[in-house]
Design a protein around this nucleic acid. Sequence first.
DNA 1: GCCAACGTTGGC
DNA 2: GCCAACGTTGGC
Length: 142
Amino acid sequence: MSNLAYWLFKSEPSTWSWEDQLAKGNQGEEWDGVRNYQARNFMREMQIGDRGFFYHSQKDKEIVGIVEVIAEAHQDSTTDDERWECVDIKAIASVPEPVSLEMIKTDPRLSDMVLVKNSRLSVQPVTKAEWDAVCDMGGYKE
DNA sequence: GCCAACGTTGGC
DNA sequence: GCCAACGTTGGC
């Protein structure tokens, strides 16, 4: 039994938005469509109960929600290619005050966030310190 | 809409 | 196994 880890899931809202995720409720949804080895490898590391941020890329560029991993990595149902796996996640809560990329870039505590350093990676790890800082900025309490 | 950064593909 | 060409992502 290891400690829960923290992650960030990035999505372009016109493809899959936080509202879409919320609508799925506790049933959740698989995080399919990832075709990047680094992102896939992070999903393989995930365990049930891990927490994640849900980030809207492109137009909004802000962290809008909190999710939980509810199924470990399995075959991505949108392809027969066995290289691609994904986890399932469900929405836990909306972030009361969404945390924008601009705010993240401005905060010295978050200067090493992958979101800042590697903006193209769609699934990425978040440290406990970063998690706490963003939750604090967003007015989210467990 | 542009383009920098990055990942992937395929020819050699 | 290298690397040029190409495609995609996402911030601006």
